[in-house]
């Protein structure tokens, strides 16, 4: 498992409790359109990602993240900047 796979796996686990519709999660899955998350769900989810990786994902940054893949990249970048 590469580091990236590990990050992906962790995020996959974090998505589960918010995946009320039971959508199959893939790298291209979009949070707003596919998972149908509203802004409050997104904020709760972002908080759980922040706590898991001990990073800050500002709203400005989060607004640019549409897919699971993009989130994995953003988390890895934020971890490297820490």
């Amino acid at each position: 498992m590469t580091d990236r796979d590990e990050t992906y796996a962790k995020i996959f686990t974090l998505i589960e409790p918010f995946n009320k519709k039971g959508i199959d999660i893939e790298p291209g899955t979009r949070f707003a359109q596919d998972l149908e998350w509203d802004s409050l769900t997104v904020m709760d989810f972002v908080a759980s990602v922040e706590d898991e990786f001990d990073i800050l994902i500002s709203m400005n940054r989060a607004a640019e993240i549409e897919t699971v893949d993009q989130l994995v990249d953003a988390v890895r970048q934020l971890e490297s900047e820490r």
Partner: peptide, 22 residues
């Protein structure tokens, strides 16, 4: 500015985020 919300009235959530600011 960079905008970071924390869970309503959650002191720990506030503190964690403050400590993560560069």
């Amino acid at each position: 500015a960079e905008i970071v919300p924390f869970r309503h009235n959650d002191i720990d959530a506030l503190e964690k985020r403050l400590k993560r600011v560069p």
